[in-house]
């Protein structure tokens, strides 16, 4: 805890790890980690003022509504909650968001999306899970499709991905599938993360002043 940045940072940040450590372990630079702290602070003090991100705070930031239940947001929250404490601390926030950095390896994005869609955590994406995901998407959007259309979409996609035809998509099949269908991972890259120091310039001004 010797340097200026850790004094500025560490004691206040729940789940505190030096920004330098987080930067070296993730796709972020030290400046980007520091800029992310500004976003983290805003989210983690939005409802329950304890410096941790609770699910309602996550939903509020995503939907401008803290009560909006959503299967996808639940899944993302649970995957961000690496220590399984029911809340997201700063370390978890940075490590998880790093997967969404445009520079993060595609293998990380592929693995994260697989976990996201493996709803029951069996190590496979099953057809029932895919159906559930499609129905949840339709539910949150204004898109209305008949049951038979939903079945056709699910069957068609599933058979493309389940290349060995054993009724479940394993991680290798998923990897092959996203190679052929890169648009399926489109949401896994956030250009914002590359510009994060521009979005939260106040921290950078302080960092530069410090140097």
């Amino acid at each position: 805890m010797g340097c200026a940045s850790s004094r500025q940072f560490g004691a206040r940040a729940a789940g505190h790890v030096e920004p330098e450590v987080l930067a070296s372990d993730t796709s972020f630079t030290v400046n980007e980690v520091e800029a992310l702290y500004e976003l983290y602070k805003r989210m983690s003090f939005s409802i329950i003022k304890d410096g941790l991100i609770h699910k309602e705070e996550f939903q509020l930031a995503l939907f401008r509504n803290s009560k909006k239940a959503n299967l996808f947001a639940d899944r993302v929250f649970d995957l961000f909650d690496l220590k399984r404490t029911g809340v997201i601390d700063f370390e978890e926030f940075v490590r998880s968001l790093s997967v969404f950095h445009p520079k993060a390896p595609t293998s990380e994005k592929t693995a994260f999306a697989f976990k996201l869609y493996d709803l029951r955590g069996t190590g496979y994406i099953e057809k029932e899970e895919l159906r559930e995901l499609v129905l949840a998407l339709l539910d949150e959007s204004d898109l209305r499709l008949s049951d038979s259309t939903v079945e056709a979409i699910v069957d068609n996609t599933f058979s493309q991905a389940d290349s060995n035809g054993d009724g479940k998509i394993d991680p290798e099949e998923w990897e092959e599938f996203v190679k052929k269908n890169p648009a399926a991972l489109r949401n896994m890259s956030l250009p914002y993360l590359q510009d994060i120091t521009m979005a939260f310039p106040s921290f950078i001004t302080r960092s530069e002043a410090k140097d």
Binding site: L39, A61, Y117, S141
Partner: peptide, 25 residues
């Protein structure tokens, strides 16, 4: 034809999966 729609592409458009909104003020 709707049956050629890719389910995973469709899912990736979910609002709950589009974390870009976290960065919009």
């Amino acid at each position: 034809r709707p049956s050629v729609m890719n389910a995973f592409e469709l899912i990736s458009t979910s609002q709950g999966l589009n974390l870009g909104t976290l960065f919009e003020k």
